[in-house]
Design a protein around this nucleic acid. Structure first.
Lengths: 236, 236
DNA sequence: ACCTGAACACCGTTCAAGT
DNA sequence: ACCTGAACACCGTTCAAGT
């Protein structure tokens, strides 16, 4: 989407809007463009090499393998998460906003969310996100130990939600699957699965946003509640 | 590698212990065997067809596509989760045991965990797991609405933990990545990321089991705490 | 209905050879 | 050091033709 080396005399624009050079940044730029147009599984060595007017072998100077390629692209995407965050509202609201921001980026490129779970993020953008989150939990009075683990849980949850909503390969029946599951749940053997039957409607209640907020509140409240050790199960 | 038409006189057993027929079940059996030996990304149409002494095109009678193939294999794996569950202990302990069981299956075939996030499970084994979990939450006195949403959150969390620990492609540096992240965290710009620096050690404290239990307790306590609506942020 | 061979349109990665 | 052509060893899926 953008040139790195120089602008090639703006005489007659090519159809291809921007040209990328055979550099690490150029490879990532081309990869991002392909990701937006054709999805992650088209972000291949061969496709990128073709866009760069070379053979796939040439990319291996800048990229270890396909996994590494995708990881570098993900890191570039994460830059948008912590840009110009709002500073007003309660800490709790800002936690939700921060995580919603993160979620939105992953939703925009849903196939990337899956990768996020298995690729360990350690780029500056991920660190900035973590920093903001920890600061907010601290502001909310959460103990350090709990805040550290809660931040992990919250980010893992948000990532999982995004991954869950990502299409497994191409497009097709994402909504269909939900309906199939709902149909299964409501048709299920009542005597065999009494609780599933009884809670059938509740399992599907609420909007995505409502459930997201519920989950965050639940985690925050749990982590703010000091006696969350196993000693208080006596109320059963 | 083996014949489909007839058994060649049971004189001397072949090395390959069992033979699979060209049926839905035979395909899944072969798929499971390949999964255990060579990992998920070797569970390909071509490999299965080869093991079944036919061409890849023949599989498309029983399997819609590769995604469907993998989903059916996953469903078969999930059978082990709800077999002969223990019935003693507090409801809280049994929740943990149940989820640990689920986690163990996903850990055993880690590449499958990723799939679990994006493929909607609706097989009988997943329903049985859900049923057990809902019954335990009910036993623990959790309100129906909260129990429904909490079960979702708990299962999503467990799945995400498993997916997180799955190698992204082949094997190699899973532990390395953690060390790289730890190195990054502890080397990070203190003034830019004060909270990350301050909590650096806490972010990596505890064993996997401890963190798993902490997370479950946190979620359970949060969901058992009725006033988890946004109205109680006033304590800031 | 089920099965197949053959083809189409792709992949990642390596390597010897060039510059 | 970087770049390349060519090759190796694979993929998923479709389709016309067979049984």
């Amino acid at each position: 989407m953008m040139t790195n080396q120089y602008q090639p005399a703006p005489r007659s624009r090519r159809e291809r809007p921007a040209k990328s050079a055979l550099t690490r940044q150029g490879i990532i730029d081309v990869g991002l463009a392909i990701l937006q147009n054709d999805g992650l599984n088209k972000v291949t060595m061969r496709r990128i090499a073709e866009a760069l007017d070379t053979g796939p072998a040439s990319l291996y100077v800048y990229v270890r393998n396909t996994v590494d390629l995708h990881a570098q692209i993900l890191d570039a995407l994460l830059a948008a998460v912590t840009e110009s965050l709002p500073v007003d509202g309660t800490w709790r609201d800002r936690v939700k906003q921060l995580l919603k921001r993160y979620l939105l980026v992953l939703f925009k490129y849903p196939e990337i969310a899956q990768m996020t779970l298995t690729t360990h993020l350690n780029g500056p953008n991920y660190l900035a996100l973590l920093e903001h989150l920890l600061a907010l939990l601290h502001e909310g009075g959460m103990a350090d130990h709990d805040a550290a683990w809660a931040s992990d849980l919250l980010l893992l949850y948000a990532t999982a939600v995004a991954a869950e909503h990502s299409p497994r390969k191409s497009s097709s029946q994402t909504a269909d699957e939900d309906q199939v599951f709902f149909a299964t749940i409501t048709t299920v053997d009542t005597s065999k699965y009494p609780n599933v039957t009884r809670l059938g409607d509740e399992l599907f209640s609420g909007s995505g946003t409502e459930r997201f907020q519920w989950a965050i509140d639940t985690i925050l409240n749990g982590a703010l509640n000091p006696p969350h050790v196993e000693t208080e199960q006596k109320n059963v």
